[in-house]
């Protein structure tokens, strides 16, 4: 089965509560379910942390450029998608990722070398797989039932959102996808 490794990076680790970790667990579980339906195994989800002091204020993101700088200053070597988890991403959106993210996580600004995901309660189970989808090459989709639709209900997904065969072909072409 094709597979993609994911790293979780908690930005401002000390700020995350037990409830937050439960939200992250649910989002990881949802991510695996979403991609499993098109035959992709999302695995790893190894956790890393950036302490509040080391984060230098980037535990709470105030603009898209701050999200970009965060990913350029921190990375985990290897071919896994780096997902930076933040408690707050001020603004109307709940995350940011490049569409078809780079294979070289040592690329410098203005490249963005990971996805940034805000913890927004139950809706995090839609935001995390959506932003990972962007990194793997998926653009927005007009079907409200599709993972890549541009909004998610504040209550999160109640059924597994769709991905199409065409989208699976796009993901298969990303350099972080390992094919059997």
């Amino acid at each position: 089965m094709p597979h993609v490794a994911v790293n979780l990076i908690y930005v401002g680790w000390e700020n995350f509560t037990t409830d937050d970790l439960a939200v992250v667990d649910a989002a990881c579980w949802a991510t695996r379910q979403v991609y499993w339906q098109i035959g992709f195994d999302m695995f790893g989800f190894d956790a890393y942390s950036i302490g509040v002091t080391d984060a230098q204020g980037y535990s709470y993101i105030d603009s898209d450029s701050e999200a970009q700088w965060l990913t350029s200053e921190w990375t985990i070597p290897g071919n896994a998608v780096d997902v930076f988890l933040v408690k707050s991403y001020v603004g109307p959106t709940a995350g940011l990722s490049p569409v078809k993210g780079t294979c070289n996580k040592y690329e410098t600004w203005p490249s963005m070398t990971g996805a940034v995901v805000e913890l927004v309660g139950p809706a995090t189970n839609g935001v995390m797989p959506h932003e990972i989808g962007h990194y793997l090459g998926l653009d927005h989709d007009g079907d409200p039932a599709n993972l890549m639709y541009r909004s998610v209900d504040a209550g999160g997904f109640t059924s597994v959102p769709l991905l199409t065969f065409g989208q699976s072909l796009t993901i298969a072409q990303h350099c972080f996808t390992t094919l059997p």
Partner: peptide, 15 residues
């Protein structure tokens, strides 16, 4: 770039 600290207690699989 800096490398974040490994944090096994943050792994969903551990919980």
């Amino acid at each position: 770039p800096r490398v974040p600290e490994r944090r096994p207690e943050g792994d969903p699989s551990k919980r």
